[in-house]
């Protein structure tokens, strides 16, 4: 069931709005701890950054969709297919700052923060689905 959908220009100032909307939905509709809520906000932010980095041009946009069931909450961040998020390095953890590349951290961070991550590409649209296992407060 779709709970909310945001369509936004692919520019950095809208990322905080995406975090706010997703965290508000999660907080009000699901049994979720403050720590898990923080994890979700960070995962959403990282996904939005990946979408923004993949998009170029004045008309570039991305969407954030919240979908829920009684047992989980999914957030889908989608953008037109200009880049391959699968190409992001899957290694995480650095031992010195020489190794650090912030652009490579987005997807591994997301994997560490949510219960399930899915990458899909279909009809020119790439999407990243992040799912948290959590019980809905009430679901209709």
């Amino acid at each position: 069931m779709q709970l909310a959908r945001l369509d936004m220009p692919a520019t950095p100032e809208f990322v905080s709005l995406a975090r706010l909307v997703v965290s508000s939905i999660a907080d009000h509709r699901y049994e979720i701890t403050e720590g898990r809520l923080d994890d979700l906000k960070l995962a959403v932010s990282e996904a939005c950054v990946l979408a923004i980095e993949a998009e170029t041009g004045p008309q570039a946009s991305f969407s954030v969709t919240c979908e829920g069931t009684s047992e989980d909450l999914s957030v889908v961040v989608a953008h037109t297919d200009n880049a391959e998020p699968e190409g992001v390095a899957d290694k995480i953890g650095v031992s010195s700052f020489e190794e650090f590349r912030p652009a490579s951290l987005g997807l591994p961070l997301i994997h560490s923060l949510v219960d399930e991550v899915g990458l899909e590409s279909e009809r020119g649209l790439s999407s990243l689905r992040m799912t948290l296992r959590c019980r809905a407060l009430e679901f209709s």
Binding site: D38, I92, V94, F97, L105
Partner: peptide, 16 residues
Amino acid sequence: QHRILKVFEITGLTKV
């Protein structure tokens, strides 16, 4: 703050 420290811990930057 745990919420901020966690990001450093996940990425290994507590060692840096």
